[in-house]
Each structure stands twice: as structure tokens, then as C-alpha cells.
Simulated scan of single mutants.
Amino acid sequence: MEQQIRTRQVTKEYVCRVEGEFPREHIECIEPIEVVSYKIGVCKVSPTGKDCRTEFQRLSYNGKTSVVLCRPHTGRMHQIRVHLQYLGFPIVNDPLYNHMVFGPKKGKGGIVGKTDEQLIQDLIKIHNAENWLGMDGDAEYSMFKGRDKTDNDEEGGSQRNTPSPKEKSPVGSDAPRVTSPPSLIASTGYPSLRPLNAHASDSHTSMVAVDVMSKNITVCNSGLVPSDNCAVAASTQTSDGVRDYNYQARFMTVDEHCYECKVRYRDPKPKDLVMYLHALKYCGPGWQYETKLPEWAGEEWREPGDDQ
């Protein structure tokens, strides 16, 4: 199957729900696509991009949004989403390509109105404002910006690499700021990471790693041991069998010297975890696999809370 995909013997069909009334006639988009930034994952239509071809066919229209069948003939990054944006019919809940950051027309016709560098800066700023709560009350640190040395850092503290100037996160006065006490962030009461060898003095000693998805592991001074009431089995070491996905505080570890342990992110809402783009059918020489249409692809389906 991998060889068939590489040699383009596999046809793919996707279904999506887009804004507006998509044309009834068959649409083919052959605009080349280039990657603006691999780091944050954003592309755009560009004359200097790679050859690209996607076919579109409208399946239904409910008066506000359209369900569209998509057939990509190439495999560029975000190909369907970028071509739909270019045509002026972005996916309804696409958090990236259905956004005013691409300009008043959201990138329709390939018109963005800003340089690639400015687009990257604006996307990073939006991402930070919408998803990030800060570290120890300071919102100037983010996963896109290396942590600079402060007065509270020791001279021997670890240094983080900063991104290239093209992708460096801007620090603006309108960035979200959090004034929560440090105790809400670092002092959680969970056990800190312990060296597997209690007598080792090497700073690179391996730390205890805990599988938070499994119930059969507990933490002790000497490392990882099976729990008294759970046996180690094949099902607990793979995706098979019953697993407990509830939060269990005893499996949580926090390293007071770890930058990532102190970064706070907003929990996504259920609607943030779904995008109306669905892989419907794959066909190859002698085989075919097709899935059911998702609920949101129904002809009369409407967005929850939509009065129209």
C-alpha cells in the first residue's frame, strides 16, 4: 500500500463543510502551494510553490454552509485546506486558514497583504493569546520563544535555543498576563522526579518515567514497579485491553527545574478538537476502504446554536 501511495496509484476522497454556497459545477484547483513555515505548519498558494491539483464537487448546501467532496491528486501539506481558502470557501471551523490573520478576505485569491515574516509573527502572537496562560505569572515566555536569563536564574542554568528571527515570537503589551501565585503552577504536591540510582551524583542520571495511560505502574525510590492490584500484561503494554484514562495524581511528576513543567496552557473546548474535514474513501489496485459520513456532513445539519 505504501508503494501504491508513493506511485500515486491510490485515489483519495475527503468530505468537508465550508463557508458559503459552493458552486454546483465541478471545480478544479491547480494553484501551486509552498510552505511558509514548517515550524508552525502554515502554507499558502504561491507561484514559487510545488505543483498541486485538487478536484471539488458540492454535495449539499443548507443555506449557510456547503458540504464538499474533495479529491486531491497530489499530497502537499494542507492541500485541501489551502485550496479551499484560495477559492474563498474555507472550512467552517478551520482555526488556521479560516482566519482574518490572512487579511480581510481570509486569503481568498491568494491575497494576504503582508510578508511571510509578518504572517508568521501574527500567527504566533494569536496562538499565544488564545492558548497560552504563561509561566509563573509571566506571559512573555512561550514555546516559540527561548527563555532569556533573568535575575532569578543561576549562572549555571540551562539555556534554551531561540528560534530564527523569521519565526521569533513578538512580545507585545497586549500579550495575556497571568498573576497567579507560583504555588498554583510549580508547587503541586506531586512527587518530583527521582534518580533511578539514589547515590548517583551525575546530573545526567536517568529520571523516572511514568506511563500516565496505564494503571499498572507506581513510583518508588528505586524506579518503576508493578502495582499490587494490577499485573503487567500484553494488553497494558499496547493499545489492546481496557485502559483507565481518568486523571490519577499519583502518576504525575513535576521537576522544579524544568521549563515545560511550569508552562500553563488553556484546556481546549470540545469544539476545538474537531475540524469538519474527514477522510472518506481510499481506493487502490484491487482494494477499497470507505468510512461513514460524519454527522456534520448531513444535508440538513446545522451548527449547534445556529438560529438560521
Rank of each mutant, 00 (worst) to 15 (best):
M1S: 12
M1K: 00
E2M: 05
R6A: 12
R8L: 13
V10S: 04
E13M: 07
Y14Q: 02
V15I: 07
C16S: 14
E21W: 01
F22I: 10
R24I: 10
H26F: 07
I27Y: 11
I30M: 03
I30W: 00
E31Q: 12
E31G: 01
I33Y: 02
K39T: 07
K39Q: 13
I40D: 03
C43V: 03
K44C: 13
T48L: 15
G49V: 12
R53F: 02
R53Y: 02
R53E: 09
T54E: 10
S60Y: 05
T65M: 09
V67S: 09
V68T: 04
G75V: 09
I80H: 00
Y86I: 02
G88Y: 03
F89C: 13
P95N: 03
N98A: 11
H99F: 03
V101S: 08
G103S: 05
K108P: 00
I111Q: 13
G113D: 13
T115M: 02
E117I: 11
I120M: 06
I124E: 04
K125I: 02
I126M: 14
N128K: 05
N131G: 02
L133K: 12
M135H: 11
G137T: 11
G137H: 06
Y141I: 06
S142L: 00
D148C: 09
D151C: 09
N152K: 15
E155H: 03
G156Y: 15
G157Y: 05
S158H: 11
S158Q: 06
T162S: 07
P163K: 08
P163F: 06
P165F: 08
P165I: 04
K166M: 06
K168V: 06
S169D: 07
P170R: 13
V171G: 10
G172T: 14
D174F: 08
D174S: 10
P176H: 15
R177K: 15
S180G: 02
S180K: 09
P182L: 13
S183Y: 07
I185T: 11
A186F: 08
A186M: 13
S187G: 02
Y190A: 10
Y190Q: 09
L193I: 01
P195V: 09
N197R: 15
H199G: 01
A200E: 05
S201N: 12
V212D: 03
V212I: 11
M213A: 15
N221M: 09
S222E: 09
S222M: 06
G223Q: 08
V225W: 00
N229G: 01
C230F: 14
V232R: 04
A233P: 00
A234V: 14
S235C: 12
S239C: 12
D240F: 04
R243P: 02
R243T: 12
Y247G: 01
Q248R: 14
A249M: 04
T253L: 15
D255G: 09
E256Q: 09
K262D: 01
D267C: 03
P268H: 10
K271A: 10
D272T: 02
V274E: 15
L280K: 10
K281V: 15
K281N: 14
W287K: 05
W287Q: 04
Q288T: 15
E290R: 04
E290F: 01
T291K: 02
T291S: 08
L293E: 04
L293C: 01
E300D: 13
W301R: 04
R302K: 14
D306V: 08
D306I: 07
